[in-house]
């Protein structure tokens, strides 16, 4: 009889990630990344410039509204760079989460017709957004260099070296949350409406538009429960020297990220097999 190459059976274990399969489809992952990256600015005049325009405009808006009208402190930093730091970081997390969270609903036509490891789609989203994030970080560095040279407000320190770790934690958080939500939205469409609102709320609960020092001390722990808080705070501390480095809070974010990622993988894996019958 010989050996069978593949066996399709009802049950799979909880953690059947099938790394081999994902590796086999790696070209598809890069094609998805390339597709999403290229198709965004097809038929636009400014093309890839939009990647810059978006964070600049948001930073300017925040500078005017929160900085000038509402007079919220920026810890002595130039307002525009303070907001830009927060927005750039936050956007990566938020984009990963938003995009991943409707994986199943958006791709149901595709998923209903062909099989490939479904995990490819959220992974490609993480990578696509990483490219976008890279571009926006360059923009941030340009602004940061300008202020570093012209003023003495920028006080970078060795914590800059853990910047890659911050990105990894953020990606894990966005991916994990996104996968959990994407799995739930296959059954409860209500979450789709909730997610946009929830992400915005979470932003106000993290030090994007204010330094954590402006929060009354007895409420700071609430803000610090938000796993994004320590990431944005560490980033700002590393590049600009604001606030202080809170190692425990960063550890908390890291552990939180690992847990949510695991949960996400399990739930995603479970739904992957049955969603086409329930969606």
């Amino acid at each position: 009889m010989g050996k069978w190459d593949k066996e399709i059976t009802p049950k799979k274990s909880l953690f059947d990630l099938n790394i081999n399969q994902i590796w086999k489809f790696r070209d598809l992952l890069f094609l998805f990344v390339w597709r999403d990256f290229v198709s965004v600015y097809k038929q636009t005049i400014l093309g890839p410039l939009w990647f810059f325009i978006q964070p600049i405009l948001t930073s300017i808006t925040f500078t005017i509204i929160f900085g000038n009208f509402a007079q919220i402190s920026t810890d002595g930093m130039p307002k525009i760079i303070f907001y830009m730091a927060g927005i750039t970081m936050w956007n990566y997390f938020a984009d990963c989460l938003n995009k991943t969270s409707n994986t199943f609903v958006v791709n149901q036509g595709l998923f209903g017709k062909v099989y490939f490891p479904r995990l490819i789609v959220p992974l490609s989203i993480i990578v696509t957004n990483l490219l976008k994030f890279g571009i926006q970080i360059i923009l941030f560095i340009v602004f940061w260099t300008y202020f570093y040279v012209t003023t003495d407000t920028m006080q970078p320190n060795w914590y800059i070296l853990i910047f890659p770790l911050l990105i990894i934690i953020m990606a894990a958080l966005g991916l994990g949350f996104g996968m959990v939500i994407s799995a739930l939205t296959t059954k409860y469409r209500d979450l789709t409406f909730l997610i946009g609102f929830g992400v915005q709320l979470l932003m106000y609960g993290s030090p994007v538009i204010y330094p954590i020092s402006t929060v009354p001390e007895k409420y700071q722990w609430i803000i610090k429960l938000n796993p994004m808080t320590s990431i944005i705070d560490t980033f700002k501390h590393a590049f600009m020297g604001t606030g202080s480095f809170d190692g425990y809070n960063l550890l908390y974010s890291g552990v939180f990220a690992i847990c949510i990622l695991m949960l996400g993988l399990v739930v995603f894996n479970k739904v992957e097999k049955s969603f086409i019958d329930t969606v």
Binding site: G2, K3, W4, D5, K6, E7, I8, T9, P10, K12, F111, G112, K113, V114, Y115, K273, S274, I276, D277
Partner: peptide
């Protein structure tokens, strides 16, 4: 759909030799 792995069977098994494309 079962053969193309879009959805899983409730019982039983499907054994395949070689590359399958649906």
């Amino acid at each position: 759909k079962l053969l193309s792995e879009v959805t899983n069977p409730t019982t039983g098994s499907i054994k395949v030799k070689g590359k399958i494309a649906a």
